[in-house]
């Protein structure tokens, strides 16, 4: 049981820092953002699972060699003799970590939903609904000259364009912008971000959390680009990105967070990278699945103690 706990601890440590740091540097991800996003979700989930699992498995050690066996013995009230303070401390730690992760996730979700509701109320009174770019969908137009386009997910979804964007872009470009935002809404991209927003808020001192959040954000933008490009055309979408992105140039220091992704997005629209080969795709998805299965199996079967001395 101790070996299982140690294995989970190693896995948790790998998933907390080296694995996301290395994965954030990978460049194949821009060739298939969907596969990359699934891998990121697996990474986060496996990390949480092993982080909780390591102290839990250690603490339950005296009761049984696997989680189900130990849990049923624990609930049945059988009291093994070899329980020490360390075991109880480990169980407390597991509860603490699990509680913390769940609390942060719920808090983040509530705060985000509240801000979305507030924004929706505000936008409803300051924007006018109308159609643009020959599309049938109603778009909310906010009367400012700045070049801004965004969508507000959750609740009744809202696509907002500034009057500046409507004035400066032609119909095809407007359709591309709207198609991009519709892709975000249709695929509920904000849910992919939520866990990483929570993780970043829980551990702001760990640089990997911010990198993970930024990387997932960038992949979501690429995914929305891909969907919009099939409707509006790659070059038209790239033109829309460049027109809006370059309308207000900011000093370099201010964009440490979201810097390079715009150039990457335009480059992959103008000169599409080769799609990921089917075998590579399958390998990436299999790795993601394995990543989830390793901590799960360690918890459920206690492989190490069964095989060990």
């Amino acid at each position: 049981m101790t070996a299982t706990a140690a294995a989970l601890l190693v896995l948790a440590a790998l998933l907390a820092w080296p694995a996301p740091a290395a994965f954030a540097r990978a460049t194949w991800t821009r060739r298939d953002p969907v596969v990359a996003l699934l891998c990121w979700q697996a990474l986060g989930l496996a990390g949480g699972l092993s982080l909780i699992g390591a102290p839990l498995v250690y603490g339950l050690g005296p009761w049984g060699s696997s989680l189900p066996a130990a849990a049923s013995a624990f609930v049945a009230g059988s009291a093994p003799s070899r329980v020490t303070v360390a075991h109880w401390a480990a169980l407390g730690l597991a509860a603490l970590i699990a509680g913390r992760l769940v609390t942060v996730l719920v808090e983040s979700g509530v705060r985000v939903a509240r801000m979305q509701a507030r924004h929706r109320e505000l936008l409803r009174v300051v924007t006018r609904e109308r159609t643009v770019g020959g599309l049938s969908r109603q778009i909310n137009i906010v009367d400012v000259a700045d070049m801004v386009a965004f969508c507000l997910p959750g609740g009744p979804p809202m696509i907002v364009l500034s009057a500046g964007v409507v004035a400066e872009l032609d119909d095809a470009e407007l359709a591309a912008v709207v198609a991009h935002e519709r892709a975000h809404l249709a695929e509920r991209h904000h849910l992919f971000l939520l866990a990483f927003v929570a993780w970043q808020r829980a551990l702001p001192m760990v640089p990997a959390t911010r990198r993970a959040l930024t990387t997932v954000h960038d992949l979501i933008e690429m995914r929305a680009d891909d969907r919009a490009a099939t409707i509006a055309g790659r070059v038209v979408l790239a033109q829309a990105i460049v027109r809006i992105g370059t309308a207000v140039a900011v000093p370099s220091g201010a964009l440490a967070i979201h810097g390079g992704v715009t150039a990457t997005r335009v480059a992959r629209l103008v000169d599409p990278p080769r799609p990921l080969p089917r075998a590579a795709k399958a390998a990436a998805l299999a790795s993601a699945l394995a990543l989830l299965l390793v901590p799960t199996l360690l918890l459920l079967t206690g492989l190490f103690s069964a095989a060990g001395p």
Binding site: S108, V112, M115, Q116, H119, V148, A149, F150, C151, L152, P153, V177, H180, E181, H184, H189, H190, L193, L194, V197, I220, A224, A240, I241, I244, G245, L255, H258, V261, T262, R265
Partner: peptide
């Protein structure tokens, strides 16, 4: 997470 901006 609150809103998705088209481009920064």
């Amino acid at each position: 997470a609150v809103l998705a901006r088209f481009v920064g």
